[in-house]
């Protein structure tokens, strides 16, 4: 196929142009806004992986389910998707908690391949259920009064993305406080650090597993609410979100909130800059190349702790 050539300004000329700095700044802003959402996508996935050693393939579908709940709450009752986490979090917690107690706890001590297969199967069920219930058509939250876009010296900032990113970071902070200052949070950390010692200290491990999976699912649902404002909703997006969560966890490192935070923001910025430097065609490739480089230099990820690789 013919490549476009004449009439196209070569990419290096763009580098020299005055508009380059604005474009650079714009891409940085785009990347950070996207990265904030990525953090929210990855945090629950990272928690479940770190504590339960389960690679939760159900994660993407739970995010999409959260989006649908937010979408229907908005279209049927007029509730803003930004408020939807208030009820989606308890719903998804109950869903995750029940799933872990009833199903996953039976195989949680088995090799990772068993739990991987189980969550894969559960994902097929949930995803096809959503396909049947909601169809594959894309749905979008359409506000009556659309959010403004700010124009700061040529750098365009969409306000809905800023709000979504801010809420994502607030949720992350809430999660940090939960882990570090609540009794149950300390118990989760204790189980993660040394399961046998935690049992000896009187921690009910099965219970903590269920709580952890519930919290992970709750975060996925909350991420879904925020994403519903930015991206159209379809069951087909679940694989996309799952893939991002996986890359972010490996990039940032497992076992800490800092890992998901750094990994998410980094991936957002890398993809955004990748588009500018290598063209949109190669932006995903750029993300994976950086991931490979990080793994080669620092196998635990950017902010990972030893023992969780």
């Amino acid at each position: 196929m013919a490549e476009p050539s004449d009439g196209l300004r070569p990419r290096f000329l763009l580098w020299l142009s005055v508009r380059f700095m604005t474009l650079l700044l714009q891409n940085l802003v785009n990347g950070l806004l996207l990265g904030g959402l990525y953090v929210c996508i990855a945090i629950g996935f990272s928690l479940i992986w770190g504590v339960l050693n389960i690679i939760n393939l159900l994660h993407g579908s739970i995010i999409v389910l959260g989006s649908y709940i937010a979408y229907y709450a908005f279209t049927m009752f007029g509730i803003s998707p930004f408020l939807a986490p208030l009820f989606v979090i308890p719903m998804m917690f109950a869903f995750g908690y029940g799933l872990q107690l009833a199903v996953l706890n039976r195989v949680v001590d088995k090799p990772v391949l068993i739990t991987l297969t189980l969550t894969f199967g559960l994902d097929l069920i949930l995803n096809n259920f959503m396909l049947a219930a909601f169809t594959a058509n894309f749905r979008r939250v359409v506000f009556k009064d659309p959010f403004e876009t700010l124009d700061l010296y040529g750098v365009i900032i969409p306000v809905d993305r800023v709000v979504a990113m801010a809420l994502a970071l607030v949720l992350t902070l809430a999660f940090y406080l939960l882990l570090n200052s609540s009794r149950i949070g300390r118990a989760i950390v204790a189980v993660r650090n040394d399961r046998d010692a935690a049992v000896l200290m009187g921690v009910n491990v099965k219970q903590i597993y269920a709580v952890t999976f519930g919290v992970g699912a709750a975060f996925a649902g909350a991420a879904g609410c925020l994403l519903s404002v930015v991206f159209p909703i379809s069951p087909m997006s679940s694989g996309l979100y799952l893939g991002k969560a996986f890359v972010i966890c490996v990039l940032g490192g497992l076992g800490s909130i800092g890992g998901a935070l750094i990994g998410g923001l980094a991936l957002g910025v890398i993809e955004s800059m990748g588009v500018m430097l290598a063209g949109p065609e190669h932006s995903v490739l750029t993300g994976f190349l950086v991931l490979l480089a990080v793994l080669a230099i620092k196998p635990t990820g950017l902010a990972g702790k030893r023992g969780y690789e």
Partner: peptide, 11 residues
Amino acid sequence: NAADHSAALSD
């Protein structure tokens, strides 16, 4: 499977 086009659209 590209979800976000903000960078390309800025360019």
